[in-house]
């Protein structure tokens, strides 16, 4: 909600502002919902001035309509699909992580969520030569692991170069996370830092650990912060054409994603990881797309089986 302030347009002078305040109009919202002719009576400001202010306020604070064709042509040029480093999951996700989308990885503890993030991190920094920003809320990030994964792919000489394309921030609560996201947006719109102009992937591992502490107790505030975070992540993804990858825990013994009904609507795509043993007793991971806006349901029911096999160059398998 924006306050009506002097200087917004030439008609909005000190006296006009005061007169409007007298009539009980302080914000842009209060102003636009009132009938102009009524306002003339109440505030004594001239009809012409009020109309001029109304036009400016509407232009200033409303969203700009885009023609579907323009959106389409710009989408064709700006959307990129980032490889996750795990071919079977790429197939499952219809190519990989899409820029402009929020993808969530959910699964129980130690199912390989963080390893999956590392894998994406490496493949974006190494293979596509784009920047990755890693926001770590639970202290699980280690650069050595990234280096190990790159080395395991026989790209040892690329380790230093690839790691310069990854930036890491430790955030300890939701407020720091929101602040960080705001900062990223600022950098992205300034475009002075080379790192941010090639930023294609933002990872938040794990959202649940910053949201849990604010939920419960005075429940409502937590839900507000949760919606705020969800919206912010999506705006970052859509406005700057970035792929945002987040991890989340599961509740009720792996049956449902944690954080409840409000959060369940937030991501564009959700990938569910679960653990089981195959017929020979070796542990395997099942990956399943449970939410997607671009696939039909039949496709989302397929699962990819990821084996824990030290011999394959699949980074998720190597060290999970």
């Amino acid at each position: 909600m924006s306050a009506l302030r002097v200087g917004l347009c030439s008609a909005l002078t000190d006296t006009v502002c005061d007169a409007l305040r007298q009539a009980g109009i302080r914000t842009a919202n209060e102003f636009v919902i009132k009938d102009v002719e009524d306002l003339v009576q109440k505030s004594g400001v001239s009809y012409k001035d009020l109309q001029a202010i109304r036009r400016v306020v509407l232009a200033q604070y409303s969203s700009f309509p885009q023609c579907g064709l323009e959106v389409y042509t710009s989408a064709l040029t700006s959307i990129a699909i980032l490889p996750t480093g795990c071919p079977s999951i790429d197939t499952l996700l219809d190519g990989g992580l899409y820029t402009g989308e929020l993808t969530e990885i959910a699964g129980q503890t130690a199912v390989g969520k963080t390893q999956f993030c590392f894998s994406c991190c490496v493949s974006v920094a190494c293979d596509t030569k784009q920047s990755v920003l890693y926001l770590d809320t639970c202290g699980s990030f280690t650069a050595e692991r990234l280096a190990d994964i790159i080395t395991a792919q026989d790209k040892e000489q690329e380790v230093d170069e690839a790691l310069t394309r990854v930036r890491y921030h430790r955030v300890s609560d939701i407020f720091q996370l929101l602040e960080r996201l705001e900062e990223i947006k600022l950098h992205l719109s300034k475009q002075t830092d080379q790192f941010y102009s090639s930023l294609k992937l933002v990872i938040v591992d794990n959202v649940a650990s910053v949201l849990y502490p604010v939920l419960g107790g005075r429940h409502m505030d937590g839900l507000g912060l949760m919606s705020h975070l969800g919206l912010k992540l999506k705006i970052l993804a859509v406005d700057f054409s970035i792929a945002v990858l987040i991890t989340n825990n599961v509740a009720s013994e792996g049956a449902r994603v944690s954080l409840g009904k409000t959060w369940s609507h937030v991501p564009h795509t959700r990938l569910f990881l679960s653990r089981r043993h195959d017929v020979e007793g070796r542990p395997v991971r099942d990956a399943k797309v449970v939410k997607s806006n671009k696939m039909d349901q039949a496709k989302t029911e397929k699962t990819a089986v990821i084996r824990q096999d030290v011999q394959t160059p699949d980074p998720l398998s190597i060290l999970s």
Binding site: V32, S63, Q66, G68, L69, I235
Partner: peptide
């Protein structure tokens, strides 16, 4: 492409933004 021309897309990031956008839809 000619069909997509018939679509107008708007994005809103807050309820205030939505309100003012709806009022400006008049135009």
């Amino acid at each position: 492409k000619s069909c997509l021309k018939r679509l107008q897309l708007l994005r809103c990031n807050s309820s205030s933004n939505l309100l003012i956008t709806l009022i400006s839809l008049e135009n």
